[in-house]
Amino acid sequence: MNWKAFLAMLSRDAHVARRNFVPMVMQTMLQPMLFTFVFGRVLVSGGMMTQSYQDLLIPGVMAITMLMTGVMGVAMPLIAEFQFSREIEDRLLAPMAIEWLAVEKILGGMIQALAAGAVVAPAAWLVLGRGTAVSFSNVAQFACIAILVAMMSSAGGLLLGCSVGQTQIGLLFSMVLAPMIMFGCAYYPWSALAAFPVVQKLVLINPLVYASEGLRGTMTPHVPHMDLALVIGVLAVMNIALIALGLNRFVKKAVG
Protein backbone atom coordinates (compact mmCIF):
# COMPACT_ATOMS: atom_id res chain seq x y z
CA MET A 1 0.00 0.00 0.00
CA ASN A 2 1.36 3.37 -1.08
CA TRP A 3 0.44 5.82 1.67
CA LYS A 4 2.18 8.74 0.03
CA ALA A 5 -0.02 8.48 -3.06
CA PHE A 6 -3.09 7.87 -0.91
CA LEU A 7 -2.49 10.96 1.21
CA ALA A 8 -1.65 13.07 -1.84
CA MET A 9 -5.01 12.14 -3.37
CA LEU A 10 -6.78 12.90 -0.13
CA SER A 11 -5.12 16.30 -0.02
CA ARG A 12 -6.08 16.89 -3.66
CA ASP A 13 -9.72 16.24 -2.78
CA ALA A 14 -9.47 18.44 0.30
CA HIS A 15 -7.95 21.19 -1.83
CA VAL A 16 -10.78 21.01 -4.37
CA ALA A 17 -13.44 20.72 -1.63
CA ARG A 18 -12.06 23.82 0.08
CA ARG A 19 -12.43 25.72 -3.20
CA ASN A 20 -16.08 24.64 -3.47
CA PHE A 21 -16.76 25.07 0.24
CA VAL A 22 -19.50 27.71 0.19
CA PRO A 23 -21.74 26.19 -2.51
CA MET A 24 -21.17 22.78 -0.97
CA VAL A 25 -22.32 23.97 2.48
CA MET A 26 -25.33 25.71 0.99
CA GLN A 27 -26.27 22.62 -0.95
CA THR A 28 -26.26 20.28 2.01
CA MET A 29 -27.10 22.49 5.01
CA LEU A 30 -29.67 24.98 3.83
CA GLN A 31 -32.47 22.50 3.27
CA PRO A 32 -32.30 20.81 6.70
CA MET A 33 -31.90 24.14 8.49
CA LEU A 34 -35.00 25.56 6.80
CA PHE A 35 -36.86 22.41 7.69
CA THR A 36 -35.76 22.65 11.29
CA PHE A 37 -36.91 26.25 11.49
CA VAL A 38 -40.31 25.69 9.87
CA PHE A 39 -41.23 22.48 11.68
CA GLY A 40 -39.39 22.97 14.93
CA ARG A 41 -40.09 26.65 15.47
CA VAL A 42 -42.90 27.99 13.32
CA LEU A 43 -45.26 25.03 13.64
CA VAL A 44 -44.43 24.41 17.28
CA SER A 45 -44.94 28.03 18.34
CA GLY A 46 -48.15 28.12 16.30
CA GLY A 47 -49.39 25.15 18.29
CA MET A 48 -49.60 22.83 15.29
CA MET A 49 -46.82 20.60 16.64
CA THR A 50 -46.15 19.68 20.25
CA GLN A 51 -43.02 20.90 21.98
CA SER A 52 -41.67 17.37 22.18
CA TYR A 53 -41.45 17.21 18.38
CA GLN A 54 -38.33 19.35 18.67
CA ASP A 55 -36.51 16.47 20.36
CA LEU A 56 -37.02 14.33 17.29
CA LEU A 57 -35.56 16.79 14.88
CA ILE A 58 -31.91 17.15 15.83
CA PRO A 59 -30.85 13.50 15.25
CA GLY A 60 -33.06 13.28 12.15
CA VAL A 61 -31.67 16.43 10.59
CA MET A 62 -28.17 15.28 11.44
CA ALA A 63 -28.78 11.93 9.75
CA ILE A 64 -30.14 13.55 6.59
CA THR A 65 -27.32 16.05 6.40
CA MET A 66 -24.68 13.38 6.85
CA LEU A 67 -26.32 11.18 4.25
CA MET A 68 -26.60 13.94 1.67
CA THR A 69 -23.08 15.22 2.30
CA GLY A 70 -21.54 11.77 2.02
CA VAL A 71 -23.48 10.79 -1.08
CA MET A 72 -23.07 14.13 -2.85
CA GLY A 73 -19.49 14.61 -1.72
CA VAL A 74 -18.45 11.32 -3.33
CA ALA A 75 -20.94 10.78 -6.16
CA MET A 76 -20.94 14.21 -7.79
CA PRO A 77 -17.17 14.60 -8.22
CA LEU A 78 -16.92 10.96 -9.29
CA ILE A 79 -19.57 11.34 -11.97
CA ALA A 80 -17.78 14.41 -13.30
CA GLU A 81 -14.35 12.77 -13.15
CA PHE A 82 -15.52 9.69 -15.04
CA GLN A 83 -17.26 11.77 -17.71
CA PHE A 84 -15.78 12.87 -21.05
CA SER A 85 -12.95 14.73 -19.39
CA ARG A 86 -11.79 11.53 -17.64
CA GLU A 87 -10.14 13.68 -14.98
CA ILE A 88 -9.66 10.65 -12.79
CA GLU A 89 -7.24 9.10 -15.28
CA ASP A 90 -4.14 10.70 -13.82
CA ARG A 91 -4.89 9.21 -10.41
CA LEU A 92 -5.61 5.81 -11.92
CA LEU A 93 -2.08 5.93 -13.34
CA ALA A 94 -0.51 6.70 -9.97
CA PRO A 95 1.62 3.88 -8.51
CA MET A 96 -1.11 2.55 -6.24
CA ALA A 97 -3.68 -0.21 -6.74
CA ILE A 98 -6.79 1.50 -8.11
CA GLU A 99 -9.04 0.04 -5.39
CA TRP A 100 -7.26 2.36 -2.96
CA LEU A 101 -8.43 5.35 -4.95
CA ALA A 102 -11.99 4.22 -4.25
CA VAL A 103 -11.11 3.77 -0.58
CA GLU A 104 -9.67 7.28 -0.59
CA LYS A 105 -12.96 8.57 -2.02
CA ILE A 106 -14.87 6.83 0.79
CA LEU A 107 -12.57 8.23 3.46
CA GLY A 108 -12.82 11.75 2.01
CA GLY A 109 -16.62 11.48 1.94
CA MET A 110 -16.68 10.24 5.54
CA ILE A 111 -14.66 13.20 6.73
CA GLN A 112 -17.05 15.58 4.96
CA ALA A 113 -20.12 13.80 6.33
CA LEU A 114 -18.77 13.86 9.90
CA ALA A 115 -17.86 17.54 9.58
CA ALA A 116 -21.32 18.35 8.24
CA GLY A 117 -22.93 16.42 11.11
CA ALA A 118 -20.74 18.22 13.63
CA VAL A 119 -21.90 21.57 12.26
CA VAL A 120 -25.57 20.86 11.62
CA ALA A 121 -26.40 19.38 15.03
CA PRO A 122 -25.41 22.45 17.09
CA ALA A 123 -26.84 24.73 14.40
CA ALA A 124 -30.20 22.96 14.64
CA TRP A 125 -30.01 23.17 18.41
CA LEU A 126 -29.54 26.95 18.12
CA VAL A 127 -32.37 27.30 15.61
CA LEU A 128 -34.64 25.37 17.94
CA GLY A 129 -33.99 27.90 20.70
CA ARG A 130 -31.53 25.85 22.75
CA GLY A 131 -34.31 24.22 24.68
CA THR A 132 -34.01 20.64 23.49
CA ALA A 133 -32.34 17.96 25.54
CA VAL A 134 -29.58 16.21 23.62
CA SER A 135 -27.35 13.79 25.46
CA PHE A 136 -23.85 12.66 24.64
CA SER A 137 -23.53 10.53 27.73
CA ASN A 138 -22.30 7.46 25.86
CA VAL A 139 -19.53 8.95 23.72
CA ALA A 140 -18.19 5.66 22.40
CA GLN A 141 -21.64 4.56 21.28
CA PHE A 142 -22.32 7.94 19.65
CA ALA A 143 -18.95 7.93 17.86
CA CYS A 144 -19.49 4.38 16.62
CA ILE A 145 -22.90 5.21 15.17
CA ALA A 146 -21.77 8.49 13.67
CA ILE A 147 -18.80 6.82 11.96
CA LEU A 148 -20.96 4.00 10.61
CA VAL A 149 -23.47 6.52 9.26
CA ALA A 150 -20.71 8.57 7.61
CA MET A 151 -19.19 5.46 6.07
CA MET A 152 -22.52 4.26 4.77
CA SER A 153 -23.22 7.63 3.18
CA SER A 154 -19.94 7.87 1.33
CA ALA A 155 -19.88 4.19 0.33
CA GLY A 156 -23.38 4.75 -1.05
CA GLY A 157 -22.00 7.78 -2.88
CA LEU A 158 -19.28 5.61 -4.41
CA LEU A 159 -21.79 3.03 -5.63
CA LEU A 160 -24.17 5.65 -7.02
CA GLY A 161 -21.36 7.69 -8.56
CA CYS A 162 -20.09 4.63 -10.44
CA SER A 163 -23.57 3.55 -11.57
CA VAL A 164 -25.05 6.82 -12.77
CA GLY A 165 -24.14 9.06 -15.70
CA GLN A 166 -24.24 12.83 -15.87
CA THR A 167 -27.61 12.79 -17.61
CA GLN A 168 -29.19 10.84 -14.78
CA ILE A 169 -28.29 13.10 -11.87
CA GLY A 170 -31.81 14.54 -11.87
CA LEU A 171 -33.23 11.04 -11.63
CA LEU A 172 -30.84 10.25 -8.80
CA PHE A 173 -32.35 13.07 -6.77
CA SER A 174 -35.99 12.48 -7.55
CA MET A 175 -36.04 8.69 -7.68
CA VAL A 176 -33.46 7.71 -5.07
CA LEU A 177 -32.63 10.45 -2.62
CA ALA A 178 -36.01 12.15 -2.20
CA PRO A 179 -37.93 8.92 -1.32
CA MET A 180 -35.05 7.86 0.92
CA ILE A 181 -35.36 11.08 2.89
CA MET A 182 -39.17 10.93 3.12
CA PHE A 183 -39.13 7.29 4.26
CA GLY A 184 -35.95 7.61 6.29
CA CYS A 185 -37.62 8.03 9.70
CA ALA A 186 -35.73 11.29 10.06
CA TYR A 187 -38.79 13.45 10.75
CA TYR A 188 -40.65 10.81 12.77
CA PRO A 189 -39.61 7.71 14.72
CA TRP A 190 -39.89 4.32 13.06
CA SER A 191 -42.47 3.28 15.66
CA ALA A 192 -44.76 6.03 14.34
CA LEU A 193 -45.21 3.93 11.19
CA ALA A 194 -46.99 1.20 13.21
CA ALA A 195 -50.30 2.31 11.70
CA PHE A 196 -48.94 1.40 8.24
CA PRO A 197 -47.53 -2.12 8.73
CA VAL A 198 -46.58 -2.62 5.07
CA VAL A 199 -44.76 0.68 4.85
CA GLN A 200 -43.11 -0.02 8.18
CA LYS A 201 -41.66 -3.28 6.79
CA LEU A 202 -40.71 -1.76 3.42
CA VAL A 203 -38.72 1.13 4.83
CA LEU A 204 -36.39 -1.36 6.49
CA ILE A 205 -34.42 -1.54 3.23
CA ASN A 206 -33.70 2.18 3.55
CA PRO A 207 -30.27 2.79 5.12
CA LEU A 208 -31.34 6.22 6.35
CA VAL A 209 -33.83 4.54 8.72
CA TYR A 210 -30.96 3.02 10.69
CA ALA A 211 -29.00 6.25 10.60
CA SER A 212 -31.92 8.24 12.02
CA GLU A 213 -32.91 5.61 14.56
CA GLY A 214 -29.32 5.05 15.64
CA LEU A 215 -28.55 8.72 16.18
CA ARG A 216 -31.90 9.17 17.89
CA GLY A 217 -31.18 6.27 20.20
CA THR A 218 -27.85 7.64 21.30
CA MET A 219 -28.62 11.40 21.33
CA THR A 220 -32.21 11.45 22.59
CA PRO A 221 -32.67 8.09 24.33
CA HIS A 222 -36.04 9.13 25.80
CA VAL A 223 -37.62 9.24 22.32
CA PRO A 224 -38.83 5.84 21.01
CA HIS A 225 -36.15 4.18 18.86
CA MET A 226 -34.95 0.82 17.58
CA ASP A 227 -32.66 -1.38 19.61
CA LEU A 228 -29.19 0.12 19.19
CA ALA A 229 -27.33 -3.19 19.00
CA LEU A 230 -29.56 -4.13 16.10
CA VAL A 231 -29.02 -0.76 14.43
CA ILE A 232 -25.24 -1.05 14.73
CA GLY A 233 -25.33 -4.57 13.33
CA VAL A 234 -27.46 -3.59 10.32
CA LEU A 235 -25.33 -0.52 9.63
CA ALA A 236 -22.20 -2.66 9.71
CA VAL A 237 -23.65 -5.21 7.28
CA MET A 238 -24.94 -2.49 4.95
CA ASN A 239 -21.51 -0.87 5.01
CA ILE A 240 -19.76 -4.07 4.04
CA ALA A 241 -22.21 -4.67 1.19
CA LEU A 242 -22.03 -1.10 -0.12
CA ILE A 243 -18.23 -1.00 -0.01
CA ALA A 244 -17.89 -4.36 -1.76
CA LEU A 245 -20.35 -3.37 -4.49
CA GLY A 246 -18.89 0.11 -4.82
CA LEU A 247 -15.31 -1.13 -5.21
CA ASN A 248 -16.42 -3.68 -7.77
CA ARG A 249 -18.27 -1.08 -9.85
CA PHE A 250 -15.40 1.35 -9.54
CA VAL A 251 -12.85 -1.12 -10.91
CA LYS A 252 -15.19 -2.13 -13.76
CA LYS A 253 -15.76 1.47 -14.66
CA ALA A 254 -12.09 2.42 -14.41
CA VAL A 255 -10.54 -0.28 -16.62
CA GLY A 256 -11.52 -0.63 -20.29
Binding site: Q83, F84, S163, Q166, K253, G256
Partner: peptide, 14 residues
Protein backbone atom coordinates in the same frame (compact mmCIF):
# COMPACT_ATOMS: atom_id res chain seq x y z
CA UNK B 1 -19.52 0.51 -26.60
CA UNK B 2 -17.20 2.52 -24.38
CA UNK B 3 -18.75 2.60 -20.90
CA UNK B 4 -18.72 6.35 -20.50
CA UNK B 5 -19.99 6.97 -24.02
CA UNK B 6 -22.85 4.59 -23.26
CA UNK B 7 -23.60 6.44 -20.04
CA UNK B 8 -24.17 9.57 -22.04
CA UNK B 9 -26.00 8.22 -25.03
CA UNK B 10 -28.11 5.61 -23.29
CA UNK B 11 -30.29 6.05 -20.28
CA UNK B 12 -29.63 2.81 -18.43
CA UNK B 13 -27.84 3.19 -15.12
CA UNK B 14 -26.07 -0.16 -15.25
Amino acid sequence: PAPFAAGIAGYSPM
